[in-house]
Computed example of a mutant assay.
Amino acid sequence: MSNTKRRAIFGGLATIATAALLAGCASAPAASTSAPTASAIAGFKPCMVSDLGGFDDKSFNQLGYEGLNAAAASLGVKAITVQSNAETDYAPNLDSLISQNCTLIVTVGFALSAATVTAALANPTVNFAIIDDAADNNFDGKTDAPNIKPILFNTAQAAFLAGYASASYSKAGKVATWGGMNFPTVTIFMDGFAQGVDYFNKQKSKSVQVLGYDEANPSAATFTGGFEANDTAKTTAANFIDQGADVLLPVGGPIFQSAGAAITDSGKSVALLGADADVFDTFPTYDSLYFTSVLKGIKQATSDVVTQAGTKSTFDVTSYIGDLSNNGVGIAPFHNFQSKVDSGLQGELDTIKAGIISGSIPVKSYLVTK
């Protein structure tokens, strides 16, 4: 991806305001209470700031939160977390954690990129990690502060598998994908999904259509404008159902919940995919609708990064990149749809996965992995 194109996508991040009242901690999943299994270096204090989705989003904020607390419990330390309820909360929330002497601050989501870079440059003795962003607001291919470790996931590879499976399952010959906002870590799902559908069409001589995203014209993709489960998100899903799509992949935190409500209201047989977490487990309200989920290993990656920071004298800022080869991404089981998919589908997916890992089946992504 060119720097010009990336600027267009990331443009809004640099305008995040930095003055606001401190956002209070919100309800979140219970922290782990297991006994310590490792010794933390003296004074280690891990902390985390959420994005607008909140720590109970049943998605990537929650997974990061769980990973942080799992590591803290294993190290015998207490983590400090603060939730952001508006973009203007990011900077003051970071300042609050710095004032509490946090030694590692994990920020959740690409929307915190600019605020994280600013805080890291101003506080070079504090270590930072950011989930789902390269902290490269200068668009030069380098992290903008020497004390930030990016935690990234090449989800295009997993979404490719989900797209292939969705095309195989679709009876209508129409599937749909859309996002919350136009960020690379959102569109990477949509792009991989569309590539998977395209690969299915070529392998099977089919013509399954993708609504909401066009590989040839990604700027025309559909977005709800935010990461909230609201009427706009529900209407967006309903529109795709009305257009005949029978498999839906919404990408953007809890907007999948609105899609579930839209499917239920429609009374139609429509399958729903989750993103980031296996929503069959994290949000079982619509368990009868869930076809599969495109997974990021956010919990394990966050736990590993926090544990490393808490036990090593030197903080390793090398980017973590999760992909199919290291099980950093994947797809969830078909759960209630297992008996409804083609009997040979899993074998085909296993072969495709091996091809992606070997490079014989290329998957385009803005994220270049080594």
Rank of each mutant, 00 (worst) to 15 (best):
S303Y: 01
A20C: 15
V197D: 04
A158M: 05
A17T: 13
Q157V: 05
I9P: 05
N123L: 13
T15Q: 15
S339Y: 06
Q338G: 09
I255F: 08
A271E: 01
T292V: 06
E66L: 03
S325F: 01
I131T: 11
G355T: 05
G260C: 12
R6S: 15
A261W: 06
Q195D: 09
V208W: 02
A309R: 04
M1Y: 08
I105N: 06
K268D: 11
V294M: 03
T185D: 11
A134R: 04
A120P: 04
A120R: 01
C102L: 08
K142E: 13
A40K: 02
A354G: 15
V126N: 03
K202G: 10
N154S: 14
G328K: 02
S113Q: 12
S319I: 01
N154W: 03
Q62P: 11
L349S: 04
I331F: 00
K202V: 12
I151N: 04
P218N: 14
P284I: 07
F227G: 11
Q100W: 10
G163Y: 02
P284G: 07
A216S: 11
Q209L: 12
I16M: 09
A301T: 05
T155H: 08
T235N: 15
A73M: 07
L63G: 00
N327P: 05
G54A: 09
P333Y: 01
D316T: 07
S59M: 00
Q243D: 14
L367H: 03
F240G: 01
S313L: 13
A91P: 08
G225C: 07
D231G: 12
S84E: 00
A73Q: 01
L121P: 11
Q62I: 04
A71E: 01
S288I: 05
A301F: 05
A31V: 07
K5G: 13
G212C: 09
D136R: 03
K268W: 05
D95L: 02
V208M: 04
L295Y: 01
T224P: 06
K364V: 15
D56T: 07
F280D: 14
T33N: 10
K78W: 11
S313R: 15
S99H: 14
A216L: 09
A40W: 00
V108H: 06
N230H: 15
G212L: 03
T118P: 00
A158E: 01
K296A: 03
G67C: 00
L345T: 12
P36M: 08
G76T: 11
A23S: 15
F193P: 01
G252R: 06
T15R: 14
T37C: 09
A165Y: 05
A30I: 05
D56R: 14
C47A: 15
I298K: 03
V77Q: 00
